[in-house]
Design a protein around this nucleic acid. Structure first.
Lengths: 347, 347
DNA sequence: CTGAAAGCGCTTACAG
DNA sequence: CTGAAAGCGCTTACAG
């Protein structure tokens, strides 16, 4: 049971542990035959060096970690392969860690940075500014990607590298688009009532666009995600849309603040015996793959995934190479017009 | 930049490093006031102990790791929260590691076990029997969950704890069901042509059920997943179904060996101007959440997720507690009849 | 209750 | 090219 150590291998090979270490680490100053002999034994006994010891000893690794919060969001995991490819192309080891919904991502990030002697870190998703989250304690280069900010603390992120979109503005674009298409009773499926991050920002955009188009804001058309159902899921979108449709017969369009919610909305509409887009128009948010395969294909706000991935790695690279300036990059998302919206007026 | 160590804290507090260590690890033999004083400094300076050193020193951790291969499969990540809850209820620390598609899960598992002094491991997804994958090198208790086996090596798994379904049998059930409903030209969207694991097993079940129902096996009705498109995705299902429908006007039912593929099939059918289930019946596989929200809701083979999670943890627990017997649990999946299949005959 | 010391398994100057 | 030795940052018997 006791695992093999470098000592055991050294003994078996009749060399010192230094030699074993050199053989394993491709040290140039070692006799080719010795090396081969050691490596053969290593292979035969399936020796795997203890990483803790190695990490403890080594001053630094060549690893960049990606810390993901929120496995349930397809938008995030669609980014994963791209991050990996890009990071490996840059010559770094890549390591993915998934933090569960209620894990403390900042503490985990700190610990990880120390334990692994990381070169840098990418913090994807999650919310990095709740009380006590001391990002400044992370002493290695990092970049925040698609990290939610509470509406009151957004400016703080100026002190960090970050890559995101403007939630308020993108939401505004959607509602403005629907209003220009002649929709007068536009419902929104927003965050939970207590949400003060993404949901709240997108609701702001909704209100602003309504006002600019001369439409009244009506509380009855706001569907807050339910607390008793997992957030941002089809099930939540379905439940909220169902209630919305039952109580408001005049709705002609529904904007859901995520694609998964919107897929639930599709179902609620079908169950009500209505059709998309003939009776009700639907717009989603994120632009996940699946939206191309809904029937009808979904009009949605597509976040510039590729650009976001690339520029976050760019930021991280320059930070690793000593650049002290911090950038807050905000990307434009794109409203992908597909088949789930009907124009009510002839333009 | 240099991170704080236990020495620094000891110096600041005017105590020995032993005392700092005791304060941090809730050692009973320490003066309450000393402890408080140390902890305050720890907090103030935001000292985080070096985990590598700790792991190196500690003989064992209390951690169980979940190694997931294949982030892109919703079926797997729907299991994640359940695993976590159950493991934490058992009193273990939980750690999730995602191995990318072409990572060597066995090597990673071995290294991880050593580095973290893990109590046990759950290997979810992936394929653990390709040449050179020496599972027996993993010296800590582990259990394989939903791990694909090549058709020739399945018996080997008898030496390990494993939890899975019988792919051949479940596939058989689907085709038998469709045949009994009067379908005579049933297409399948199977694995890649070279697949010798899940895809191949499900294709076997398809053939057997056809034979038992007096239906001929026709190569033209077999759609192999395309190599130029990511496996098991909507895009792949869409492309393959589209070709299938174009070349075979007599198809009345399509069985896709994963739900995501089936969602692509839905789209291909809609694009062809056909309707589900009136013109074409569709059956998926896995039973992911989303299948309740497709329109029409999808008939699919639902894997018993909860039971699989619980019994894998059970197996792991008894293995950790010294039980040397290995079990190979095979669960029955359930064909969820929903609205995507039409009976062609009156039963 | 506290401290000095040994040691976990590695890597890497430093001698030879 | 190889080995003896120091040291990475911790934990934990062992004395006191």
């Amino acid at each position: 049971m006791a695992a093999l150590t470098i000592k055991d291998i050294a003994k078996i090979c009749n060399v010192s542990i230094s030699t074993v270490s050199r053989a394993m680490n491709n040290d140039p100053g070692i006799n080719a035959q010795t090396k081969e002999r050691v490596l053969r034994v290593v292979k035969e006994f399936n020796y795997i060096p203890n990483n803790s010891a190695r990490n403890l000893k080594m001053q630094e690794s060549n690893t960049i970690a990606l810390l993901l919060k929120g496995v349930s969001n397809p938008f995030f995991y669609e980014m994963l392969p791209d991050f990996q490819k890009r990071l490996e192309k840059e010559g770094y080891e890549y390591m993915l860690l998934v933090v569960d919904e209620d894990g403390d991502e900042v503490k985990i990030a700190e610990g990880l940075a120390k334990e692994k002697r990381l070169k840098g870190m990418i913090l994807l998703g999650g919310r990095f500014d709740y009380p006590g989250a001391e990002l400044q304690n992370i002493r290695i280069p990092f970049v925040l990607v698609s990290v939610a900010s509470s509406t009151t603390e957004i400016s703080k992120h100026k002190r960090f590298n970050s890559v995101s979109i403007d939630d308020r503005k993108e939401s505004y674009k959607v509602i403005d688009y629907l209003a220009k298409k002649g929709h007068r009773h536009i419902a929104i499926i927003s965050g939970r009532e207590t949400d003060d991050t993404v949901g709240s920002l997108r609701l702001d955009g909704y209100k602003a666009a309504l006002a600019d188009n001369g439409l009244p804001f009506e509380q009855r058309l706001v569907g807050y995600m339910r607390k008793d159902i997992p957030e941002y899921t089809e099930a939540n979108g379905y439940a909220v849309a169902k209630a919305l449709l039952q109580e408001n017969k005049d709705i002609t369009a529904i904007f859901a603040i995520s694609d998964r919610l919107a897929i639930g909305v599709y179902k609620a509409i079908a169950d009500a015996g209505l059709r998309i887009p003939d009776d009700i128009s639907v717009v989603g948010f994120d632009g996940i793959e699946m939206t191309r395969y809904t029937i009808p294909s979904m009009t949605t706000v597509k976040q510039p995934k590729d650009a976001m991935v690339n520029s976050s790695v760019d930021l991280l690279m320059s930070s690793i190479h000593g650049d002290e300036t911090k950038q807050k990059l905000i990307y434009d998302a794109e409203l992908h017009e597909r088949d789930s919206v009907k124009a009510l007026t002839i333009e």
